[in-house]
């Protein structure tokens, strides 16, 4: 069983995660055609090679993640939180305030 290197939790067994599907951009629902929309819903390219995938760490931090995984060797070369990263926001808020640094900072 492969391990996914979650950016929040570290490398964890794949059984903690839920594979959502290939990372695709959502078409504008007001401009789209049935063919384009259904391609977004159902069609995956499913290539043998590097793929950008959406995973969800359900039994861990419960964050959605974009994972770059090689579908043949299972190597993961990049992983990042999907869109909203709470760490970034918290760091920004901490930087704005004049108070002490964020808890847990190693010395």
């Amino acid at each position: 069983m492969i391990r996914i290197p979650c950016p929040y939790c570290g490398p964890r067994n794949a059984s903690e995660f839920h594979y959502i599907g290939e990372q695709r951009s959502r078409p504008d629902p007001n401009q789209t055609t049935p063919a384009r929309w259904r391609s977004y819903l159902y069609m995956q390219s499913n290539e043998a090679g590097w793929a950008a995938e959406k995973w969800w760490h359900g039994s861990g931090c419960r964050r959605y993640l974009i994972v770059e995984r090689h579908t043949v060797t299972n190597e993961v070369r990049a992983i990042q939180p999907s869109a909203g990263d709470p760490r970034r926001r918290l760091r920004q808020e901490a930087a704005k305030s004049e108070g002490p640094t964020v808890e847990g900072d190693p010395d």
């Binding site: 929040y8 939790c9 490398p11 964020v102 808890e103 847990g104 900072d105 190693p106």
Partner: peptide, 11 residues
């Protein structure tokens, strides 16, 4: 390597 890959703080 596993320890390195496991975040310990927000930084």
């Amino acid at each position: 390597a596993l320890r390195e890959a496991t975040p310990q703080s927000l930084e």
